[in-house]
Design a protein around this nucleic acid. Structure first.
Length: 122
DNA sequence: CATATGACGACAA
DNA sequence: ATTGTCGCCATAT
């Protein structure tokens, strides 16, 4: 069987993949939906380990404060802001309006992919 | 086993 | 609004 870490990362990536275009989610939010309470740092770790060329929309994950996690000016920062802007997510003074763009999954969305919302494997 | 680290988060000055 | 501290928790050494 797979190590727990692999399963955890898969769940995190699956959850992130559920973020609709034009929306963003915080690390903590992803962790919670993925069933990992207070696991914001684990989400960051999972993304760090993301394979290059993966289809996971990593750029839709930002800090709860609305800021991009990378250092302003870094390549990754520019890449992320560029992708977000192209999806219609406005960035004002380096910050994103969470109230407006935060992904708010409702029951229907969670039912669409139960495995990503609820802990199905005990 | 003890520390240090990190694409975080909440809170106090 | 900005900065510093502390809490979290899986990994790395």
């Amino acid at each position: 069987m797979k190590p727990a870490t692999a399963k955890r990362n898969e769940k995190i990536w699956a959850t992130i993949s559920d973020i609709p275009e034009g929306c963003v989610a915080s690390y903590g939010q992803i962790a919670e939906i993925a069933g990992i309470r207070r696991g914001a740092r684990q989400v960051g770790y999972a993304l760090r380990h993301l394979a290059r060329g993966s289809k996971v929309p990593w750029y839709r994950v930002i800090q709860a404060s609305g800021k991009i996690a990378f250092n302003a000016g870094s390549d990754a920062f520019n890449e992320q802001s560029k992708r977000l802007l192209s999806e219609g997510v406005a960035i004002r003074n380096g910050r994103i309006d969470m109230k407006k763009y935060r992904w708010q999954p409702d029951l229907d969305e969670l039912l669409w992919k139960p495995s990503a919302a609820w802990d199905d494997d005990q």
